[in-house]
Amino acid sequence: MTSGIQRVGVVGGGQMGAGIAEVCARAGLDTVVCEADATAARRARDRVARSLERAADRGKLDGPAAEDALARLVFTGSLDDLADRHLVVEAVIENAEAKTEIFHALDKIVEDPGAILATNTSSIPVMRLGMATGRADRVLGLHFFNPVPVMPLVEIVTSLHTTAETAAAAEEFARQTLGKTAIRSKDRAGFVVNALLIPYLLAAVRMAESGFATAADVDAGMELGCAHPMGPLKLADLIGLDTVASIAESLYEEFKEPLYAPPPLLQRMVEAGLLGRKSGRGFHVYEG
Score class of each variant (00 low, 15 high):
5 I>V: 06
10 V>T: 00
11 V>G: 08
14 G>W: 03
14 G>R: 12
17 G>N: 14
32 V>L: 15
33 V>H: 02
33 V>T: 03
36 A>D: 06
47 R>S: 14
56 A>I: 04
58 R>F: 05
63 G>I: 01
68 D>C: 04
68 D>L: 09
76 T>S: 15
79 L>N: 03
82 L>N: 05
87 L>Y: 06
91 A>C: 14
91 A>R: 13
97 E>L: 04
98 A>K: 11
105 A>N: 10
112 D>F: 00
112 D>S: 11
114 G>A: 10
127 M>V: 06
129 L>C: 06
134 G>P: 11
140 L>F: 03
140 L>M: 13
141 G>Y: 01
150 V>L: 15
152 P>A: 08
153 L>N: 13
155 E>K: 11
157 V>F: 02
158 T>H: 09
161 H>D: 13
167 A>C: 11
168 A>W: 03
183 I>S: 14
187 D>E: 09
190 G>V: 02
192 V>Y: 06
207 M>S: 08
216 A>F: 00
216 A>G: 07
223 E>P: 06
235 L>M: 14
246 S>M: 15
248 A>R: 07
248 A>G: 05
249 E>A: 15
255 F>E: 13
256 K>F: 05
268 R>A: 14
271 E>T: 02
272 A>E: 12
280 G>I: 03
285 V>T: 05
286 Y>K: 10
288 G>C: 12
